[in-house]
Design a protein around this nucleic acid. Sequence first.
RNA 1: GCGUGCUUAGCUCAGUUGGCUAGAGCAUCUCGUUUACACCGAGAGGGUCAGGAGUUCGAGUCUCUUAGCACGCACCA
Length: 705
Amino acid sequence: MHEKYTKPYDASLIENSIYKKWEESGYFNPDKLPGKREESFCIVMPPTNANGKLHAGHGSDFVIKDIIGRYQRMIGKKVLLLPSTDHGGFETQGVYEKNLQKEGRSRFGMSKAQLYDEIYTFVEKNIHNIENDVKKLGTSCDWSRNKFTMQKDIIEKVKDTFIKMYKDGLIYRGNRSIHWNPKFKTSLADIETKFEDKTEPFYYFKYGPFEIATSRPETKFGDKYVVMHPDDKRYSNWKEGDTFEAEWLNGKITGTVLKDEAIDMEFGTGVMTITPWHDATDFEIAQRHGLDYEQIIDLDGRLMDIAGEFSGMKVHIARPKVVEKLKEKGLVTKIEQKHTHAVRVCERTGVILEPQLMEQWFVKMKPLTELALKALKEKRFSFVSKQFEKTFRYWMENSIDWNISRQIAWGITIPAWFKNKGEENEEIIVSNTKPAGDGWKQDTDTFDTWFSSGQWPLLALGYPNNSDFKNFFPTDVMETGRDLVFKWVPKMIMFSLYLTKEIPFKVIYLHGMVLDRKGQKMSKSKGNTLSPLELSDEFGTDAMRMSFIIGNTPGKDMPLTTNKVNAYKKFANKLWNISRFIYSNTENFDFDNFDTSLLEKDQLNKIEELDEFKKDLSKDIDEYRLYLAAEKIYHFIWHELADKIIEDTKDSVISENKDIKNQYLLLKFLHESLKMLHPFMPFITEEIWKDFPIKDKDLLIVEKW
RNA sequence: GCGUGCUUAGCUCAGUUGGCUAGAGCAUCUCGUUUACACCGAGAGGGUCAGGAGUUCGAGUCUCUUAGCACGCACCA
């Protein structure tokens, strides 16, 4: 009887040493796995952002992939779980700038190169911390292949992709309405923004013969067009191109009437003026009607010279003053104090965004989305939860061109060169090297993070020539959070189809968000976060892993409570005691050489049931019903092995004349149970496996399923 | 406005292709400790499976419909 089993199971005593054993065995590395393994299996793990700590969402993230990986390893495949870190572009720079602020410093007054170097150092340290955290979750990934998006070879390939796409006409330089973050001074893609409801006053102004309504009076300096719906009977006397005189902010102006179907007749007065430079819808109207446009707000978010006495003011300060001036002129007809509307803000920083017209790099999406839709139609990849297929399709059918340039230091520089040829003419060359001749200036912009992470399965495996790429691509499963169904997954599919004609992965498993006990999103500001590491410390990693899986179908959000984690901590202890009982009553039993022909019908039936159970469990895992499989094995061990097998055979193995058939049965059930539970609860099963009476056995992690 | 999901025990949720008496964890109640395990065991209570209609020999499961909730997307001059 082993001393250790006399005490309740204590995860903290064994987890570190077990993980170390696995690492030392080399079995995380597919090249070092024992036995002959024909088939390979690969999951490229979504890169963790280099700027923070692991949160509860990462719990599901790593646990699900690890369960799948461990199972595939046990059924005899060459398994590669590839870990990686993403530089996190804009987000990371934001985190770093906050740190600077705390030190009383700022990035302004620092060269871009200096900022880049400082962030690199910061990130390197963080990556190390994150690695340790991922190990704490029991993740069996191959650290020797760890990849980072800012590695030199990866940067080169990202640039090569850009150049190839430019040559193929899939990337263009365009002057379009983009989302500008005036605080962090960069443009953003649509998916990096979100809407926030704001309740603000809504103003009605007299504008010549019309009444217009707006929530942004401070943008109205240059407006000289009024737009109405062509079917609006109230204004049927006015025709497109009619002009009128109006007293306005800077004195008298001549306005022009436009008719456009984008106007909502129900909203406001049914007439609006347009500000194309600072509103995407207005810009589209202006383009349709061939109008010119003027910038009102600069990149700092301040009014420009056109605003007269208001020039230089931040928009939110100017607004009440502008209204005051209009009031004095007698042009304010009505103010609704509580108008609730959605304002576009930066998803990461919450900063209110200002639409601006700017020259940026855009990816032409249509040819790429068509590739993805075709592959979907041909069922070359599939979603574990079918509902995501619709979301995916919707995004592919409605995506607009993608702004990939960011005006931040922390990112991969865009390999483009500009030469001013006088007036507004600019010559552009896309190349890794400086073009011959004088006057070439390199583009100072960097790529959107998603431009590199979108190519991640390819880049991480060393596309196009690395042997890993040949062995493991296309990968088997993409497992990530359901919020990435349109942010990331389609990009990987499109880049992969474009560059290699292959799909990047066969199966897409999307998990839901982890919520707090009340079903609310976890966030630092609400103070309701549960760190997987704290859970692991308190209840054991194995218990934490089970709680992330059970009772949660793929794609569905899941409230997490410590109560639930505790339930699986109890389960670990139960298994511990089961092992204690079995080992202490089978001492000196020769499991290797037991003659199974001695078994009687009773035992044979039980073993047959065991086989049936295992088949069923395997099927569940094969079809990614991990939540069911975990619950079944839990139930099997507690209510079959403990409640029935042990209870029924107890007397016969405790007595002086031990029944060797039942001893065998107990060990057989324990053997299989440990294997079946191992993907879910790897630490405790590996620990118990140490004492299993088989000679010359290897680690459980590579035991044959 | 468009889309997706949800509504099953007091709470959180499973229930895979329709098929034994609808399950688990937590919570509640009763009993039990010289017992592998009190981080336990034996047992109990608790459900018109949101409402309605339909398909079927049979519906928690499929179809339609009503209501409520959540999330995503679009618009918000």
